[in-house]
């Protein structure tokens, strides 16, 4: 159990991994690291639905504890954060700042002096997806915009 909790919580320890665009492309935390991945291992679309209905919480990360290379690290943690706090986070992203935005960038190890420029770019990119994205897919769209715009400027330290 402790191990399971650890895997869910290592997010904010901010130790270790560089966030690379390559890694981000490889992992879809919603599809690969959630409850749905266990329930629908061969049907990625089903996995996505299941995760969004239920949770992308501790249990979700736990279920993939045997795959530490893919489902640990800051990208999964930030996906979890986005999924769980999406409503205030989306509002703050629209405003361009806020405590959830700051916490999200802290998970990714972004220095404070680059927060404004990152969120400016995230804001622009995510806004273009709003019209065409289903509500259930919006956390992933925000996640993609965040990962895309932090890949070269943030690292856990």
């Amino acid at each position: 159990m402790k191990k399971l909790i650890l895997s869910a919580l290592a997010a904010a320890t901010l130790v270790g991994t560089n966030i690379s665009a390559v890694q981000a492309e490889k992992i879809n935390p919603w599809r690969d690291c959630g409850i749905g991945a266990l329930i629908f291992p061969s049907v990625p679309a089903g996995a996505v639905i299941s995760n969004i209905i239920w949770d992308l919480g501790t249990t979700a990360v736990t279920s993939n504890a045997s795959s530490p290379d893919t489902c640990e690290g800051e990208t999964v943690k930030v996906a979890q954060f986005i999924q769980e706090t999406f409503k205030p986070l989306e509002e703050e992203t629209a405003n361009g700042s806020g405590e959830h935005v700051t916490a999200m960038l802290n998970i990714l190890g972004c220095e404070e002096n680059v927060h404004n420029s990152i969120i400016k770019n995230v804001r622009l990119e995510y806004a273009t997806k709003l019209e065409s994205t289903e509500d259930t897919q919006k956390p992933q769209a925000l996640y993609n915009a965040v990962i895309h715009n932090t890949a070269d400027v943030c690292s856990a330290s």
């Binding site: 989306e90 509002e91 629209a94 700042s97 400016k120």
Partner: peptide, 17 residues
């Protein structure tokens, strides 16, 4: 809420509260 979000994105970002 969806419309408000879209509208808010169309307005300038504001500094932290």
């Amino acid at each position: 809420k969806k419309k408000l979000i879209r509208t808010r994105f169309s307005l300038p970002a504001s500094p932290a509260k």
